[in-house]
Design a protein around this nucleic acid. Sequence first.
DNA 1: AGGGTGACGATCA
DNA 2: ATGATCGCCACCC
Length: 108
Amino acid sequence: MPARKQLSAETRICSAILQIPRGKVSTYGAIAKAAGLPGHARQVAKVLRGAYGLPWQRVLGSGGEIKLRGDSALEQRFRLESEGVRFRGRKVDMKAHEHKFEKPGARR
DNA sequence: AGGGTGACGATCA
DNA sequence: ATGATCGCCACCC
């Protein structure tokens, strides 16, 4: 059977990000992995930066830490808290808010 | 072609 | 906890 892996990495990444529901969050690394690109966390950041219309505030660095700087970081935190995401110090309480991707849906 | 860069991540001092 | 380093990789001069 012709394996379908035609979708661009960017498409798969966006797709994964869009799966994160309101009130939940994920990390660059986890998203990359969910998109079938383990180890390409930077790719996720790149896409996130350029793409428009994605819930960027739900993407954090490993451990639930906000990786942005300055105003952007403040806005991200504000937006997440508005969605009900709780922080513990500088990091998000991943224990309660980390979104889990479905394994069989890694590719499409 | 080659070097610098970055919304990363893991590891070590 | 903080900072340095290294691995990784697509992009941009």
